[in-house]
Amino acid sequence: MTSAPNSYENILELNDLQTSFFTKDLEVKAVDGVSFAIPKGKILGVVGESGSGKSITSLSILRLLKEPGKIVGGEIKFKGENLLDKSEANMRKIRGNEISMIFQEPMTSLNPTFTVGQQISEAYKIHQGLNKKQAKQRSVDMLKLVGIPSPEKRVNQYPHELSGGMRQRVMIAMALACNPELLIADEPTTALDVTIQAQILDLIKDLQERLGMGVLLITHDLGVVAETCDYVAVMYCGKVVEYTDTKTLFKDAKHPYTVGLMKSIPQHDQDIEGDLAVIRGSVPSPAEMPKGCRFAPRCPFATELCREKLPDLVTDEEGNQIRCWIYSDEWDGDPEVNVHAETERTTESY
């Protein structure tokens, strides 16, 4: 970090990123103008349900999208430089080296025909030009770092010989091998049991603090966000609807979708009398995307304005961002509306 060409505050900055999937006669805007930033050495959580575009966003950053997905606009600034301007060869030098990624399914994310050691070594060989022996030694060190017992033995094992939690540790070891400055973790604990999830989240947080890297944590689990992240971006239908620091979000969420999401999750540490609050209906299909606010058809507060015009993502003086008409001067509904109290009363789902 001695001779950075540009000075930058944020390790990663997305500006109006747009990613679409093209079918014969339809453009599905999976990521529809997403902007957020990860300050150096911080953890940003991106939450959203399926179809929110959170995973596509993460794949777009490393430019790992497969056909027919395509980045159609915006900027991805990593250390101040736009990754979309880089050649494929230069991108390869960044992948697994400066930006690493771990995925949801530890069971299928490792190659079944290579040993754990071979797979971690590969990163060292590609990015640091180490020989086989050095790379293997470093792999053993890495396995030790991520808390795998008897790493000298494990390094020669195949993925199927390891448990799910162990495999995710191997994935983390592989991702962190070259000391990346940014780690993208796409639902890293979703496939794991809670006691193992606790281990893995603990590990990611610990390593993040020790290595000082930025982390982009994609998840659908608000609990995971609350316990690990510094900042949160809530996504809905390809757009960020709310961005704030974690504390503020959980104390005072503003967007009706965020509030609805929080109220609809039954918690293990509190009782809820009667029915759960629900968000009516379901996520609209890409073919019938509402033209106004994407959430309007499900929102208990939606007005004519919401249905007709898409609100902007507005930044307040504290840097928090919100995409909702309720908080604008143009709001045409009840000026005294209480999002939290009203949401609680929405329990009928149809």
Binding site: L64, M101, F103, T108, E122, I126, H127
Partner: peptide
């Protein structure tokens, strides 16, 4: 289409 192929690409493999 397997996940581990994506993993390899994410590692920077040619």
């Amino acid at each position: 289409d397997q996940d581990y192929i994506r993993t390899a690409r994410a590692k920077g493999v040619k």
